[in-house]
């Protein structure tokens, strides 16, 4: 570069930055619109509507789809979540323990239950446990089994989340608590864990949403008519009516829960942000 060049405003060769940006954005819109149009034109809407949107079939699903299927889905999920949270808390604390064997045990648990598909856990609970302990019944029948199976899976994920949350609380918080005379356990319960939960609220909710979907695996335990949840209910009805509308309705019911849940969490997050900052 010569001295003369530096005096001038540097000009890009070809397109300027602004022109490039416009071109790039324009191209993205074109691709998007083209994709939507292609889908709309090529899909056979008539047949789709026939198979998935039969109004009278949908209507006859009510109120059972809510009072029975959705209720069971929520029940399975919440019980699994509670078991998972309790167990996950214990495992997280074991993982942070100064006692070696506790740490190893927690690590092994997490690796195993995070590595196995939830489906296998359900089959294991449904088949292996009755085989191994003949005569024993898991408390709560199907509900107990689902809570246990979902809880075992969820605990592995939640333990790691909770551990990360606890470690994300600044070290000074524990020091301040200890200097005030809190025992380590009491400092954990009163000071550290409440702050950790604020931090991990979003990932925990994610876990809840995952559990909602995993609760559909209950069908591998074999359920009575009264114990059916959304997916099983929808599939059963789809086969008796030879139409897929119940599947669509069941799907919408899941969203009925998960979308407001996401909204509530964003609100809580914003509030916690305001308090902690």
């Amino acid at each position: 570069m010569t001295a003369g060049d530096t005096e001038l405003q540097p000009r890009a060769k070809g397109l300027t930055r602004r022109q490039k940006r416009r071109l790039s954005r324009g191209a993205q819109y074109v691709v998007f619109v083209a994709a939507v149009v292609a889908l709309a034109v090529t899909a056979d809407w008539g047949r789709l509507k026939n198979q998935f949107a039969q109004w009278d079939i949908a209507r006859q699903m009510f109120p059972d789809v809510i009072t029975l299927a959705l209720k069971n889905t929520v029940l399975y999920t919440v019980s699994g979540f509670v078991v998972g949270l309790a167990l996950g808390m214990v495992i997280a604390l074991m993982r942070l323990s100064s006692v070696g064997p506790y740490r190893w045990l927690a690590g092994i648990y997490i690796e195993i239950f995070r590595g196995l598909p939830a489906l296998l856990i359900f089959i294991f609970i449904g088949v292996a446990v009755p085989l191994a302990f003949p005569g024993t019944e898991i408390v709560g029948g199907t509900y107990g089994k689902v809570a246990l199976a979902l809880g075992l899976v969820a605990a592995a994920y939640m333990a790691e989340t909770i551990r990360a949350g606890i470690q994300a609380v600044p070290k000074g918080q524990m020091e301040a608590a200890r200097s005030l005379g809190f025992s380590p356990a009491r400092a954990m319960v009163s000071i550290i864990v409440p702050q950790a939960f604020r931090i991990i609220l979003p990932p925990l909710t994610n876990e809840l949403v995952l559990l909602f979907k995993d609760s559909s695996l209950v069908l591998f335990l074999g359920v009575t008519l009264e114990e059916r949840e959304l997916s099983k209910y929808g599939r059963d009805l789809a086969s008796t009516t030879a139409n897929s509308t119940p599947i669509l309705v069941a799907g919408l019911c899941y969203l009925l829960i998960t979308i407001p849940l996401g909204f509530v969490v964003r609100r809580m997050e914003a509030k916690a942000q305001e308090a902690v900052k």
Binding site: P170, Q173, A176, A177, S179, I191, Q195, A275, V276
Partner: peptide, 13 residues
């Protein structure tokens, strides 16, 4: 023994 820290360490929650 009371202790006061450089970074205050109040409980933010």
């Amino acid at each position: 023994i009371g202790m006061v820290f450089q970074q205050f360490n109040l409980f933010p929650h």
